[in-house]
Write a protein that binds this DNA or RNA. Structure first.
Lengths: 157, 157
DNA sequence: CCTATAAACTTGACTACTCAAGGAGATGGC
DNA sequence: GCCATCTCCTTGAGTAGTCAAGTTTATAGG
């Protein structure tokens, strides 16, 4: 059925799963990016930054911790936060004890806007995991499998 | 248990799954990139480009089709292929019938190197999905769930 | 044949990261 | 008290993609 020589027509199931994961992620990111940026002017990365801040007590975190929690580098956080500060969703706060640290802190506006973004993001997620194709158990299962896959989740190392 | 007001402490399971997927992918990509670039001097994207070519009859494809198959834009393919041409893994071939199309075609060297890369990638995937934590069924299940998630796989539109 | 539209590809300008280097402040040994 | 070392953060340079615009060639209508 396959004419010509096809190198690597078959590959291991693990590799196949990896490639599918990468592909699925690209599609998801595109979808969320376009929805979030259309309605709120932020990217998915911006949203996860804000969301993580929103989950922290007081709505504020050190930039290093933010980086660790999101799987970005420190410089990625610096660069990602800059526009969010410019548009007033986040402010920079100093630490009284340690002058090196610069907290990122959600502003009241940031909090309010974040709530709206969460709604949008949940709607988008609900479309992606439409009940027609996805049962609650499927989603939980996928989540569980992905958790095993290294994305450290929320805990520190 | 949570002091201070934490916006969006809870979120829908679908959104949670999405965020985990993004996180898992970032970790996977980093791992594959570092292995592949260390041993073969190519990124994961380069590898998927080559792999897809290797699966095509004759080891060649039109650039548009390559883009479609991998979820990239046409310009992404142009840019990704350029270095692979420079290092002699891929060549550009014209179509006798249609002067607009430029096939990307695996060179004999490309074919040989690809086989080695596949080995590396499968080893890496085997480490990630280590038998201690992952059964064959788990992997198949993950693959199946991911396939449902839009990453068009191999078929055209 | 000629013109309009569409397809395949490339290019320029931009965004979002990365890594490596560096500044500024904290900390611990002695 | 001072120096070495470590941590937090920023910055410059580079990479990998995007989108929009432009070129070239094909195709279809009249």
């Amino acid at each position: 059925m396959t004419p010509g020589q096809t190198v690597a027509a078959a590959m291991s199931d693990s590799l196949d799963a990896t490639l599918r994961l990468v592909r699925a992620q690209a599609a998801l990111v595109r979808r969320f990016d376009s929805r979030l940026s259309g309605l709120h002017g932020v990217s998915l990365t911006d949203f996860t930054l804000l969301l993580r801040l929103g989950q922290a007590p007081g709505g504020r975190m050190r930039r290093v911790d933010l980086a660790g929690a999101l799987g970005l580098t420190a410089s990625g956080v610096t660069r990602g936060l800059a526009p969010l500060e410019r548009i007033g969703l986040v402010t920079r706060e100093a630490d009284a004890r340690d002058a090196r640290v610069a907290y990122a802190s959600l502003t009241p506006t940031g909090r309010r806007r974040l709530k709206e973004m969460v709604t949008t993001a949940e709607e988008t997620a609900a479309e992606v995991f439409a009940p027609a194709a996805w049962s609650v158990e499927d989603i939980a299962l996928l989540s569980a499998l992905l958790t095993r896959l290294g994305g450290r989740g929320l805990a520190g190392h």
